[in-house]
């Protein structure tokens, strides 16, 4: 085994590189995100209801947005009937969802940052109060 030295050295380097993310983040666990719902529009709502329930939205908001897009864009359907509260909502990310949830930094970004999700919605759709660039 003339290569013992090289093999062990290689193994150490490999293990080092592989575990680096874990080591460097030790003891730095981020807090569980708590998205805030205290926007002016939500505070003025008599019954504080979203288009669907919190659990549904947490799991499915992206799928729902995709469905919304196809319904509106391809089929010309302008409203969506909620499964949880039976109300009809105008299909629009910008003017329905973001109308209430107008605090991107304290709402959308908290969970997205925690989970390292980078949706590119904002490349095109205007973040609330960020109508600009």
């Amino acid at each position: 085994m003339n290569d013992k030295g090289k093999i062990i050295a290689g193994l150490i380097i490999f293990v080092g590189i592989f575990t680096f993310p874990f080591i460097s983040n030790m003891g730095k666990a981020s807090a569980v995100p708590e998205p805030l719902l205290n926007t002016p529009v939500i505070q003025q709502m008599p019954v504080k209801q979203c288009v669907e329930t919190k659990e549904y939205m947490r799991a499915n908001h992206m799928q729902m947005l995709n469905e919304w897009r196809d319904m509106l864009l391809r089929d010309g359907i302008k409203t969506y009937k909620s499964n949880s509260n039976g109300k009809e909502y105008v299909i629009s990310l910008q003017n329905t969802c973001l109308n209430c949830h107008s605090n991107k930094k304290d709402f959308c970004d908290t969970c997205h940052k925690y989970l390292a999700v980078h949706p590119y919605c904002w490349d095109c759709h205007f973040g609330p109060k960020e109508a600009g660039v």
Partner: peptide, 16 residues
């Protein structure tokens, strides 16, 4: 022309 917020229509998205 899109740098000035006054020129933007916030109800319609830009494209990518």
């Amino acid at each position: 022309n899109l740098q000035n917020p006054a020129n933007l229509n916030p109800k319609f998205p830009t494209r990518m």
